[in-house]
Simulated scan of single mutants.
Amino acid sequence: MLIQLDFESNDPIYQQLVDQIIEGIARKELQPGEGLPSVRSLAADIGINLHTVNKAYKQLKQEGYILIHRQKGVVINPDGVPKADEDFRQRIEKSLRPLIAESICRDVSEEEFIKQCKQLFETFKGGNT
């Protein structure tokens, strides 16, 4: 999986890294049990501070996407990602609320919004970019 960061983005680098790893898992580019580079190795490979990678890995671990073993290193959770619970569903709603409100303000129709969501779902389910 190729990590591409936008250093000009308003999104923090660690969050871009988290998002791209989650996208890699969703696209099945990263499989359960598959190893990821060490913090130092990934930081060196993409030219960022190791604390940034460490922060991303900590968030991914906290959310159940990865496991960090002393001997095995960093691996995609072999049991798969934990299923959605009520907390996750609340996070979805919290994230969608401003997007829907802004879409309404910008005259994006409900149909267009839903169509775009469906296209993105299919992109991830189908493993396409």
Rank of each mutant, 00 (worst) to 15 (best):
P37K: 05
T123K: 15
K28T: 04
T52P: 02
R106I: 03
I114L: 13
K83H: 11
I66V: 11
F121S: 10
I13C: 02
V39F: 01
V18R: 06
Q62T: 10
I46R: 07
E29V: 08
Q119E: 12
T129Q: 11
E110A: 15
E8K: 14
K94F: 12
L36T: 01
L5T: 07
Q71R: 14
K118H: 10
Y65T: 01
V53M: 07
E23K: 11
Y57Q: 06
R27N: 05
I48S: 06
I3W: 09
I92W: 05
A56S: 10
S41I: 10
G33K: 04
E110L: 11
P82F: 02
E86L: 13
E93D: 12
E86Y: 06
K55Q: 12
Q15G: 00
N54S: 15
K83I: 04
P78A: 04
Q31M: 13
N54E: 12
G64S: 06
I48W: 03
L30M: 06
R89I: 09
Y65L: 04
F7K: 10
L5R: 02
R91H: 10
I21C: 00
K125A: 14
D6M: 01
V74T: 12
Q20W: 03
I66F: 05
A101R: 12
A43H: 08
F121I: 15
R89N: 09
V18L: 04
L5D: 01
K125W: 11
E122A: 14
R106K: 15
R70S: 13
G126E: 09
K94C: 07
T52V: 12
P12V: 01
I68P: 02
A101S: 10
E122K: 13
Q15Y: 09
P98E: 00
L60S: 06
F121C: 12
L17H: 03
Q59H: 10
F113V: 03
A84S: 09
H69P: 00
I100L: 11
T129F: 13
G64F: 07
Q116M: 11
E29D: 05
N77D: 08
D79L: 12
R70E: 12
I104N: 08
K61Y: 08
K28G: 00
